[in-house]
Nucleic acid binder design. Structure first.
Length: 578
RNA sequence: CGGGAUGUAGCGCAGCCUGGUAGCGCGCUUGACUGGGGGUCAAGAGGUCGCAAGUUCAAAUCUUGUCAUCCCGACCA
């Protein structure tokens, strides 16, 4: 591709709307342009990068025996009604009506395709002999983000690879799941991404096992805990901690229990402000309704209760924070003044709670708190549980080493769906005994443009982007320094032709611009290899080859230059496939 | 949806407080010089100051409304 024939609007200055590196650099390097909040046009360089990621995904999907199809983005709302996801998606689902003759038809733009694919398969699969089957597509998804942000990382319209597996047994599901998991590792590896597979909550979609693939990045929206020792990594909502039950006896030096007035001061922050203490000195007492029964849950003041863990400990289906009336009835005080001292009914505590010596808690009486609260003396616990979100420094459940808190960009998600959709949409098969069962499904997503944005976010220096060769819009950038020197241009053209002939993706900077402009743009757009043909070097029969991150170029004789670059490109590719 | 900020040329910004000629840098066009890390000189093009209403002899500037974008939060199968 010749630069002058393409559309590569690089910018020297950073648009003020862009805050995070990926957004700034993708704009400045001429990869994308914004149409509106949450919707971007991909310009030639950006689109090429996306296409390269898509090609790798296709190869690995095919290798994992998934077959590509293409489903409509337009979907009848009725399908979502049958699975109850109109409510589940809420405003995220883009729905609208169109008229067809005298009828009104309700449609949605697909946020994902479980319904469509399950409906499709239900019509064509009827026997266990046809299973397992995995289909996938690469397609634009639509989700009405209430607040699109982070540039191209969180948009209302985005490219997603979504695969769906159908099996006749859990064993089949597990085999497919593992195949997809492995394929994902290969895909991200080949894309040159630093990624962490993490254990994840499967969310309202249902199912029992799930992994997210995260790119560690400061600006990532998701938070995960990670142990370098054991490699354990998990989504914050899901993460176990290696903590155990501590002593439940009061310490010898325990201060006396004392009631203090805290008028109208009900929140943790407010109490801390008034009593000049840290949230970690407080015990937070949350009143939940667990299957309609009130339960008090104790966590340290600076911790976040984890409802999934609480639900599992209590062994209940429904769990919600109690309403004001219930809190008043259970604690005898308004919201904000609950505490474990003298509180009747069921009570469970997090492991860290008894370790708070001389704690501050609500006094179960309006406008009053206790100070000097100690376990074993002022309130009793039989045992403790893991009831809160993990935080940085918590011991790893595998190694016991302290875990780090990392932010991450979710680029992939695999999970075992089970029969949620096959049941609600009637996707059944007959087994060898002629018994009907719902198909057992898995689903597997990759944010294709997030691969590109994630690389832009994490691979750059102060001069610009640094693409891995597999995703780079071009592999080699050829720069003739004097476009009005026919002799020099002839050499440059020949090198360009030769590279193209050898199948190297080459960009030819034929702009009649000054060298400085070309060098700076070259660094900005981050093409892995740069060949410079200049007057001085040419006199000696040399041209320069420089990797994007090399400090200095190597000078290579004209006749071996193409081969040198071709080898470098091949090597770089090989490196990513290891 | 709550809180905050910003809308002036393609991009970055000044002007607004204190109403009276639309400005700067980069980019763009033409020409000359220049020619290995965003060069110099000269001459140009480009703006209903987000939109609407109001106050005023007069509004980029003051008032009200509205729209858009960005940030924090809520939300995000």
């Amino acid at each position: 591709m010749r630069w002058t024939q393409s559309l590569i609007p690089t910018m020297k200055e950073t648009p003020s709307d862009a805050e995070i590196p990926s957004h700034q650099l993708m704009l400045r390097a001429g990869l994308i342009r914004q149409l509106m909040a949450g919707a971007y046009t991909y310009l030639p360089l950006g689109w090429r990068a996306v296409q390269k990621a898509a090609a790798i995904i296709r190869q690995e999907m095919d290798r994992a025996a998934a077959v590509e199809i293409h489903m409509p983005a337009l979907q009848p709302i009725e399908l979502f009604e049958r699975t109850g996801r109109v409510e589940a998606f809420g405003s995220v689902l883009m729905k609208f009506e169109v008229s067809r003759g005298d009828r009104r038809v309700s449609l949605a733009l697909g946020p994902t395709h479980e319904e469509v694919v399950t409906d499709l398969i239900s019509r064509h699969i009827s026997s266990y002999r046809q299973l397992p089957l995995t289909v996938y597509q690469i397609q634009t998804k639509f989700r009405n983000e209430e607040r699109p942000r982070f540039g191209v990382l969180r948009t209302s319209e985005f490219l997603m690879k979504d695969a769906y597996s159908f099996g006749s047994s859990l064993e089949q599901l597990n085999v497919t799941y593992q195949a997809m998991y492995d394929a994902y590792c290969r895909i991200f590896q080949r894309c040159g991404l630093n990624y962490i597979p993490v254990e994840a909550e499967s969310g309202p979609i249902g199912g029992d096992a799930s992994h997210e693939f995260m790119i560690p990045a400061e600006n990532g929206e998701d938070r995960i805990v990670y142990c370098r020792q054991s490699g354990y990594a998990a989504n914050l909502e899901r993460a176990e901690t290696g903590r155990t039950t501590p002593s439940l006896q009061a310490a010898a030096e325990a201060a006396p229990l004392q009631m203090v007035d805290t008028p109208k001061v009900g929140s943790i922050d407010a109490v801390c402000g008034l009593l000049k203490c840290a949230p970690s000195q407080m015990i937070k007492t949350l009143i939940y309704l667990a299957d309609e029964q009130p339960v008090a849950v104790l966590v340290r003041g600076d911790h976040e209760a984890n409802e999934g863990k609480i639900r599992r400990v209590l062994g209940v289906q429904n769990l919600e924070l109690a309403d004001e009336a219930t809190i008043q009835r259970v604690t005898g005080a308004p919201v904000g003044f609950a505490g474990p001292v003298g509180l009747g009914g069921r009570m469970i505590a997090d492991h860290d709670v008894p370790q708070v010596a001389n704690a501050i808690t609500g006094a179960n009486s309006a406008d009053q708190h206790y100070i000097g609260v100690n376990v074993g003396r002022d309130y009793q616990l039989e045992t403790t549980y893991d009831l809160r979100n993990a935080t940085a420094g918590d011991p790893c459940p595998k190694s016991g080493e302290p875990m780090e808190l990392v932010h991450g960009i979710e680029v992939g998600h695999v999970f075992k769906l089970g029969t949620k959709y096959s049941e609600s949409l009637g996707a059944m098969f007959l087994d060898e005994h002629e018994t009907r069962h719902p198909l057992i499904m898995g689903c597997y997503g990759i944010g294709v443009n997030r691969i590109v944005a994630g690389l832009a976010e994490t691979c750059h220096d102060d001069k610009g982007l640094i693409w891995p060769i597999s995703i780079a819009p071009f592999e080699v950038l050829v720069i003739p320094l004097k476009t009005d020197d026919p002799e020099l241009m002839q050499v440059a053209e020949k090198i360009y032709d030769e590279l193209v002939k050898q199948g190297v993706d080459t960009l030819f900077d034929d702009r009649p611009a000054r060298p400085g402009v070309k060098f700076n743009d070259a660094d900005l757009i981050g093409i892995p290899y740069r060949m410079v043909i200049g007057g001085k070097g040419l006199q000696e029969g040399l041209i320069e080859i420089k990797g994007r991150t090399d400090e200095f170029p190597q000078k290579v004789p004209l006749d071996s230059a193409v081969k040198t670059v071709v080898d470098l490109v091949a090597q770089a590719h090989a490196e990513l496939r290891k």
